[in-house]
Design a protein around this nucleic acid. Structure first.
Lengths: 201, 201
DNA sequence: ACCTGAACACCGTTCAAGT
DNA sequence: ACCTGAACACCGTTCAAGT
C-alpha cells in the first residue's frame, strides 16, 4: 500500500520481486502486485504489455547478483560457476524461481550470463555451431534442474514419487531430487560430454 | 456433448486428451473438459482429487505408445531410443506436452519407461547411486528440451530471442531451438558424459 | 447417501466512461 | 490525451441444497 511518487518499470519490478519473496509465486498476479504497490491493476499495463512480460522482467532482476568469474577462469570451471550462480540466485527468490525455470530470462542479466557461457564454450574449442547447441543444452538442463529443486522445496509429494519411477530403495534418494549434489552430477555429465566433443576435433 | 452411459476415469482421460489435441492446452480446464464430455464440472472431482491429478493422468496416457526397445539393445542406444520415443509421443499430443514437460509423469507408462532407463544405466556399469543421479539428469534434460520444442512450436518469439542471449549470427540458429537436432546434440553430450563416468570405474 | 449446480474467491484483460 | 475502474469472460473448488 505504499504509493510512490512516480511509478516506473523498475519500481514495479522491484515491488513484485519482494512480494514474491514474501508471499510466494501465487501472490504475483497483476491484481495482487497492483494492490501491493497501491495502484490500479490497469496502471501496470501502461508499463508492461501483459503479465508475462512483467514476470520476465522480474525474473531477469532476480539474476542481478549472479556473477560470471570472467575470462581468467578455465572454461569448465567458468561454466560450472555461472550455472551454479544462476541457480543460487534463482533460489534466493522463491517467488519467481519457477517462472525463471520455465522460461530462461532474456533481459540484460540473462544476456550477460549467456555470453559468458558462450565465451567459455568457445574457449573449450567447440566449433561455433556446437557452441550454440551446447549452450542450449546447458540452459535446458539448468532450467529443468532448477524446476526440480523448486518443486522439491515445496515438498511436492509427487517429486518424491519420482523415486518410484526411477526405482531402487526409496529412502535412499529422497534427498537426491533437486539437491545441490544432484544438480552438480548432471552438470558434470554435460561438461564431460563437452570435453569429449572438444577432444574429438 | 457426448453423454456416455457410465463415466470412468479412463473415459474422462481419453476425452481430455482428445480435446487437448484438438483445441490446445488452454482448452484443458475442468470446466471445458466437463462441457466437452457433457457432464457437470463437479462430476470430474468424483474421479480425480483436482485438476492437476487429472492432467497427470492425461500426461501418462499420452505416453502409452512410447516404446522401450528392451534389454537386447546396447545401453546407450536404448537410452537414446527411450528418450526419443518419449519426446515423440509427447509431441503427438500438443495439448498435454507442456504439462508433461513441466512434470515427468508418474503413472504406469512413466514407470515403465523409467525402469527401462534405469536398466540401461545399470548395464552401462554405473554404481546404483549414480544410476539414480544420471537418470534424473536425463529426465531433467528431456523435460526442458521438450518444453523448448513446445514453445518453439507455438512460435513463441521469446524463444527465438534465446539466440540473442546465446549470441552469434541470428538467422543461423533460429531453427536450432527446440529442433530434433538440438535435442539429439544435448543427449549425445549426456551419453558421452555417462560413458566417461562408467569408464572411470 | 449421493449428486449437482449455485456461489465464492479469484484471474487477465478490454473498453467505455470520466477527467 | 490520459487515466481509471467497471465489466467481461473466464478459472478451480466449496458447499449447501436438493433428490
Amino acid at each position: 500500500m505504499v504509493r510512490s511518487g512516480r511509478l516506473t518499470p523498475e519500481v514495479i519490478v522491484d515491488a513484485a520481486l519482494r512480494l514474491g519473496d514474501r508471499e510466494g509465486a501465487e501472490a504475483m498476479s497483476m491484481r495482487r502486485i497492483a494492490a501491493d504497490i497501491g495502484c490500479d491493476p490497469m496502471t501496470l499495463y501502461r508499463h508492461f504489455a501483459n503479465g508475462e512480460a512483467l514476470l520476465d522482467a522480474v525474473a531477469d532482476a532476480a539474476l542481478a547478483d549472479a556473477r560470471d568469474p570472467g575470462p581468467g577462469t578455465p572454461w569448465a570451471e567458468r561454466l560450472r560457476a555461472v550455472m551454479t550462480e544462476i541457480r543460487a540466485a534463482a533460489l534466493r527468490h522463491p517467488g519467481i524461481s519457477a517462472h525463471l525455470a520455465a522460461r530462461p530470462p532474456l533481459g540484460d542479466n540473462g544476456r550477460r550470463l549467456g555470453s559468458g557461457m558462450t565465451a567459455a564454450l568457445t574457449e573449450a574449442g567447440l566449433p561455433p555451431a556446437d557452441v550454440v547447441r551446447a549452450s542450449q543444452a546447458l540452459v535446458a538442463y539448468l532450467a529443468a534442474a532448477l524446476a526440480m529443486t523448486v518443486r522439491a522445496g515445496r515438498r511436492d509429494e509427487r517429486w518424491a514419487q519420482v523415486n518410484h519411477v526411477v526405482g531402487g530403495p526409496p529412502g535412499d534418494h529422497l534427498f537426491v531430487v533437486g539437491s545441490d549434489e544432484q544438480f552438480e552430477y548432471g552438470l558434470r555429465l554435460l561438461l564431460n560430454g563437452i570435453r569429449v566433443e572438444a577432444l574429438a576435433r
